[in-house]
Amino acid sequence: MENTYLIKTEKLVKVYPMGQQSLVALDGIDLAFTEGEFAGLVGPSGSGKTTLLNIIGSLDVPTSGSAMTMGKKIEELSHQEAAELRNKHIGFIFQTFNLLPVYNVFENVEFPLLLLEYTASERKRAVMESLERVHLQDRWKSKPSQLSGGQSQRVAIARAIVKKPAIVLADEPTANLDAENSHNVLRIMENLNRDLGTTFLFSTHDEKVIGYLRRKISLIDGKAAKDEKITDALKGSN
């Protein structure tokens, strides 16, 4: 049964030392996510959303408890193993897009495939397919500085999905976008989730994002206060 979970946390605790004192960012989180979910961690700033995403994405390690992603215990992974996990199974989307400014759109999307040692023709096919999914196939030569915020975030999405990861972790993906671009980006991610079966896990406090979620986990002071499934009927009411 456990194997069906892509992500599972048990009594997950993360404490940041702050001088003499310490800050409890996550306080005993128990969550599990299966394939194809479109879920969000919702809560105010400082509630632990990003910390939880970082641990699930093997960018950080728990202080105690356990986090398992794609069957790998995050706390037991070496740096190399964590990098392999991210490389093969996880795509990241950040609030500030985080495109590499000296590379053009094609090269930014291509980068994860270089690490996976795809051949040039495989890379070209995958990059163009990924750019088509975010409707940017005509902008593959553009530099990040020549793109709007919405376009930049779509490139970041293309980069996250180009290797067809099982999980995409999106940290406040619409925070720097206007309403129209936010909806465009969210619809693209929704389509990818439906077409590719990719699990999307958001951290957000943006109502626009929340409106697209099929599962909403409310984090308050590092605790999972509420975990609710949102049916289509409920989504319609949002």
Partner: peptide, 15 residues
């Protein structure tokens, strides 16, 4: 910062 994003994408520290 650039190193951070590259690590997030999946590049190993050694690489």
């Amino acid at each position: 910062g650039e190193f951070g994003i590259r690590l997030a994408i999946g590049e190993s520290q050694g690489h």
